[in-house]
């Protein structure tokens, strides 16, 4: 089960990593998500693309169980989102969300412990693996305040995947990264999906979009289109269209 195609023949609710139907959410009277339907098979990198305020972060927060839907439903591996799924879900919030006075190793160790890795040896191995994966083994003992923005972002990613989750929910993980680092991140993501991990990644840049297996263009609390990058480019009817062209085209035709 390494790619989306392998899953198509056996698609049922529990085969999906994420299954969402008619999902709605409102902050008071202000609707933010207006009926989202989505099936994400296992082992896929799915990109949620949209402008700021489209509802991307709200969708991610509903999927970690921090917000309660006002309508419709969402399941992850067939279960309702919530802390019970913490073992199999990794979450990288938009803010770096790390402890400034602690070192890289101490931050990862702390979150690994909170994620239930109580055995010291197992945890030490998990932390070493995560640091290696995000290329920070040589900075293991640097405290956060000594690190650059890109390095902090990498520690944040490390904290999300330290327990080797089956699903990663990444809220704008590539914001503020230079092109080189962005490429490194995507290399990690590719390796992870190849080994069966599912990744949902929110972003507003089309650079990220091109790397995803499937994409959902989000606008004003709804998906205006979902499909592979090629399928979405094809909607423009132009041979050399970029994903940006496709997004603009679909945005205009949805209004």
């Amino acid at each position: 089960m390494t790619t989306a195609e392998n899953n198509v023949t056996t698609s049922s609710a529990t085969d999906s990593a994420i299954s969402i139907s008619g999902l709605e959410f409102a902050y008071g009277n202000r609707p933010v998500l207006k009926g989202i339907d989505l099936e994400i098979p296992r082992g896929v990198a799915f990109g949620v693309l949209g402008a700021n305020g489209a509802g991307k972060t709200t969708l991610v927060r509903l999927l970690i169980g921090r917000l309660k839907a006002t309508g419709g439903s969402a399941t992850i591996f067939g279960q309702k989102p919530g802390p019970e799924l913490a073992d199999s879900v990794g979450y990288m919030p938009q803010l770096n969300a790390l402890y400034e006075a602690l070192s890289v190793r101490e931050n990862l160790d702390f979150f690994a412990r909170m994620l239930g890795l109580s055995n010291t040896n197992i945890r030490a191995n998990a932390v070493a693996r995560a640091m290696d994966l995000v290329g920070l083994s040589d900075r293991a003992d640097s405290v956060m305040s000594e690190l650059s923005g890109g390095m902090r972002q990498r520690v944040s990613l490390g904290a999300a995947l330290v327990h080797e989750p089956d699903l990663l929910l990444l809220d704008e993980p590539t914001v503020g990264l230079d092109p080189e680092l962005r490429a490194t991140f995507w290399q990690h993501f590719k390796e992870m999906t190849d080994s069966g991990t599912t990744i949902l990644i929110s972003s507003h840049t089309m650079d990220d979009a091109a790397h995803c297996n499937t994409l959902g263009f989000m606008r004003d609390g709804k998906f205006i289109a979902t499909g592979t990058p090629d399928e979405l480019r094809a909607t423009t009817g132009k041979p050399n269209a970029t994903l940006e062209d496709a997004f603009l085209h679909l945005s205009r035709s949805s209004t």
Binding site: A86, N96, A97, G116
Partner: peptide, 13 residues
């Protein structure tokens, strides 16, 4: 404010 609580609450804390 730094978001660590949000990250913590996504664990089984």
């Amino acid at each position: 404010s730094q978001g660590t609580l949000e990250r913590l609450l996504a664990t089984a804390v």
